[in-house]
């Protein structure tokens, strides 16, 4: 038993190290003074300063934030009622609708990007910031639906019955009973959707119009034009901000 413990702990430790070492390396070397090599040449905030002065980069960051905020709002506005509707739906209809909502989650991202690109071209909707928002809302919607439903399923259906038995209207029941109970799940889902939108590369890559460059697109083009310590700094910013958002989301869900 003891032998198995050590063996298991070893593999698990290695697995964790495998997951985290690259990220740690990235952050550490974003503070390296050297321009060229991967050898450590002293501590410096220099590359973060360089980022801060890059106008195009700041514009991309602004784009990313706008897209994430708008697509997340859309996903929540459409997803919360949809999740509640799905919970009330019975029979085979529910399974079919379930499948439709889950489709964007299981579709390969490349396929999603290509399909949206083709669709926008066919309906003559010029690629722009708006097409990116629409695309992101399409894959964020199922995230909200799944997470809110998980919460709704845990709720006692008699709570709503009790509310209406006590004379609450449908809207009052939602506002006074259901909403306070699902709010943590909605906030958690919104934060995750926001994070995923911020991080998305592939769908954005296919449907972004001119002027709709996001941070990941910017990082990608920087990587493609050669590695530089600036990318390390930018990557560290992205990593740390997604970790912060995930942390927030977990805190909301725990409550």
């Amino acid at each position: 038993m003891r032998g198995q413990g050590i063996w298991l702990r070893g593999i698990s430790g290695l697995g964790m190290a495998f997951l985290y070492l690259p990220i740690i390396v990235l952050v550490v070397f974003s503070l390296n003074a050297s321009r060229l090599s991967a050898a450590w040449q002293g501590f410096s905030w220099h590359w973060y300063g360089v980022l801060w002065q890059d106008e195009a980069l700041l514009a991309a960051a602004a784009n990313s934030l706008w897209i994430a905020a708008l697509s997340t709002s859309l996903a929540v506005l459409l997803g919360l009622p949809a999740a509640m509707g799905l919970e009330r739906l019975k029979g085979h209809g529910r399974q079919v609708v379930d499948m439709i909502f889950l489709l964007p989650l299981v579709l390969p991202e490349v396929m999603m990007g290509v399909a949206l690109l083709l669709f926008f071209v066919v309906i003559h909707w010029p690629l722009s910031l708006a097409t990116v928002v629409v695309g992101h809302a399409a894959f964020n919607l199922p995230i909200v639906v799944v997470m809110v439903r998980a919460r709704l399923q845990k709720l006692d259906p008699r709570l709503e019955e009790a509310a209406s038995d006590l004379g609450a209207s449908a809207w009052q029941t939602f506002y006074r009973v259901t909403w306070p109970l699902v709010r943590p799940a909605v906030l958690g889902a919104a934060l995750l959707a926001f994070t995923i939108s911020l991080d998305d590369f592939i769908v954005t890559f296919f449907v972004a119009g001119p002027g709709a460059t996001t941070l990941p697109l910017k990082v990608y083009s920087m990587i493609k034009s050669g590695l530089s310590p600036e990318i390390n700094a930018l990557s560290s910013v992205l990593v740390l901000s997604s970790m912060g958002l995930v942390g927030l989301s977990l805190i909301f869900q725990r409550r």
Partner: peptide, 13 residues
């Protein structure tokens, strides 16, 4: 939930 592009880039580095 951390940026996939960035995590892939870390391996390039």
């Amino acid at each position: 939930w951390t940026n996939f592009l960035v995590r892939t880039y870390a391996w390039m580095f």
